[in-house]
Design a protein around this nucleic acid. Sequence first.
RNA 1: GGCAUCGUGGCGGAGUGGUUACGCGAAGGUCUGCAAAACCUUUUACACCGGUUCAAUUCCGGUCGAUGCCUCCA
Length: 466
Amino acid sequence: MQLYNTKTRRLEHFTPQDENRVGLYTCGPTVYDYQHIGNYATYIRWDLLVRVLKESGYTVDWVMNITDVGHLTGDVDEGEDKLQKGANREGKTAWDIAEFYTKDFFRNLHDLHVQQPTHTPRATQHIPQQIKLVQALEKRGHTYIIDDGVYFDTATFPAYGELAKLKLDSLQAGARVGVNPQKRSPWDFALWKFTPKGQKRDMEWDSPWGKGFPGWHIECSAMSMEYLGSTLDIHAGGIDHLPVHHVNEIAQSEAATGVPFANYWLHSNHIMIDGAKIAKSDGNGITPHDLSKQGFSPLDLRLLFLQSHYRSSANFSRDALQAAHKRRLALQAFADLRFQLKEGAQLAANDFSDVQAAMLTELQNDLRTPEAFAALSGLVDSAETYLVAPDAKQAFDGFLAFLDRIFGLQLAGSTDITAEQKELIAKREQARGAKDFEHADTYRQELAAQNIELRDTPLGSIWQRR
RNA sequence: GGCAUCGUGGCGGAGUGGUUACGCGAAGGUCUGCAAAACCUUUUACACCGGUUCAAUUCCGGUCGAUGCCUCCA
């Protein structure tokens, strides 16, 4: 398997530390609001990575964190989110808000057929581990304390910023707002923040340095190492995390352990809407729920995101989603041919195995989904024309199972049409044979009313759902 | 201001130094009882200007444009 490693900026052959097991960490959501479709695009892509790794014979330990702490103070009232404001008005706490959005997040992942990660640790449930990691850094002389927290001293970590190829001299620190002037360097970041004097936060814990809460980066290091050890095989995340979050994760992790934090770094690019980044502040933070209300299935969205490569910045639009929806229906119609095997059909077992091999090859080459789908399209077209013979049933079923394993589109999850519907089709065939086209069309219309369309082939009628 | 990335046909989206990506859509046609499907044709595809080359969308340089990051952000 080949993966593009941000660490080296090139395609590399992937080799895990253990022969058959892969330790994968992916940055999860901060649960203070609904996740938009761009967020989910990233999780769908890492789900694909896990699926392809499994298909390649690996066992995958997948850890995805839930950031349920950070900036939720007791009197949050910023941003435009009405529910959050409402929650505050109703006297809810940061804990309630985190719980609400965590549930929403997992429900959406389920609907999008993203597999359940092996572990989904909450930051609030791993405070001791985070404190321990900060203590280790303190012991090794990588920290200093100022009035609002314990900070990581980037000057003590010469490799700081290497992953993102940061040129610290040329970065414009002055553009930042709210920089604590006591920081030794603008790049230093908080490991532990103190609760401001006279304040009481919903979320705060005791620590050796005083009451407070963990910094924004330390949870990922603490929890990934807790479950996967000091060196991860793969650390994946959104491209936006590269220059700050991932750079800081590396610094604090490697400074504490002395060993490489991750062997492979994967970054997914952003989904754009109308050529611009998705941002709630711009009012384009579309959620899967918004699309459901418009009649789209979560699987339409899943297919749309799988059609583009994870490293390119894909553009979302209604038309593109509609196109994906229709493509999915066509794929479903292809899968439903398994209920309509025809004697004399021409598709043979090796037609499926050849395409399966070709698709897997593309996916193992840095998850090249566009090429994999292109390879599939040829077969779908052939199947539509030549149909599938009964003696290819096993191969066909096996192929559909393969498609569901790698793409998660649930193609083999459909059911056959009912006996009544089959009866209608038979009646229509009879009427047609007798050149009673009036009745034949009546039967066809009856089926159409049940969202079933017919097309006639030399081997008989074929139905497909709309 | 600094650092990056990218500009492909109506839309989405791959890829390549010389041959149809693929999907969705539109127009015409063949076929069909009518449809559907399929097939054929059309819808002037690779931002612009130079350069290298027998040959560039594909390499090099420049121009213009778009976007991202530098601040929590998938």
